[in-house]
Design a protein around this nucleic acid. Structure first.
Lengths: 145, 145
DNA sequence: AACGGCTCGTTAGGCACGTTAACGATTTTT
DNA sequence: AAAAATCGTTAACGTGCCTAACGAGCCGTT
């Protein structure tokens, strides 16, 4: 790959605008499907952590409980998520994906992925491999603060 | 790297959530500095294309002229950008970065980059190289459909 | 010269997404 | 029983994106 040690600062300067622009594209695309990227990602989390509360979910997604509350509002209004009172703690409401949510999740996921996959198909195998190799480093950027 | 041909769809499924989450982090970080990531990126574009119009800038950033108009409003209100009437075409207003904008750009850039760079420093040289190699493919994802 | 069509930028209205601050209700700690 | 912490919500605010509609100006055609 590269013999010399790369400067984190130089990489950051090139990586940042690329990430910002691509995120914008991803957001625009998902909007056309009626469900936004954030909503889909949230649905997945609720599906994975059934019965999780608003606060816990907010912590998972690294955002404020207030923001998460509004987020869940939108998902509930769309019929994709259900707030269920917790009998053991009457302050809490457990969150669950509805059947409609499951359905949307399955169909949207394949369609949304198709959007990105279509673009990926225009790349050389080398470039595709470069992106694949970048996924893990990108994720570890988020995890450890 | 990899001998077998990677499936674009598989790469897409791993790449998408990573991009969404990282973009959220990037956005939050920039907010703490008083100037958002989008504003900085826009300032750079205006600096690079001095006198560009709202429509041209919108096309460059792949967004609607209306959105760009509001964007420029915020930058002008903050004193970072100047709208200058074009004598040759009285519909147009050329956009220029003010001295204050230049100043902000310099100081903010180093600080903002430090945020991402700090995270990049936690990576192995291999991972850093993987990210560096991914920048160009990421950009070409945006460019043409 | 004047008409029609295109382009420039803006405004208006709407929604998603995030923040902090404050609050009522409930549980937990002391 | 009183105090403190936690759960979720609301309110007010700002950014960032969209479409639709509009006034103004430029330009080619007649």
């Amino acid at each position: 790959m590269s013999v010399l040690t790369l400067e984190p600062l130089a990489v950051a300067n090139r990586l940042r605008p690329a990430l910002l622009k691509l995120a914008r594209e991803l957001r625009r695309e998902s909007h056309a499907l009626g469900v936004t990227g954030g909503q889909v990602s949230l649905l997945f989390q609720i599906q994975r952590h059934k019965g999780i509360g608003v606060r816990g979910l907010a912590a998972l997604e690294r955002m404020s409980p207030a923001a998460m509350s509004g987020y869940v509002d939108r998902l509930e209004r769309a019929g994709l998520v259900r707030r269920t009172p917790d009998p053991k703690d009457r302050r809490r409401h457990g969150l669950f994906v509805t059947e409609e949510g499951d359905r949307v999740l399955r169909s949207v996921k394949s369609r949304r992925t198709a959007w990105l996959a279509a673009r990926l198909e225009h790349l050389d195998p080398d470039e595709l491999a470069a992106l694949d190799a970048a996924v893990e480093p990108l994720l570890s950027l988020i995890e450890e603060i």
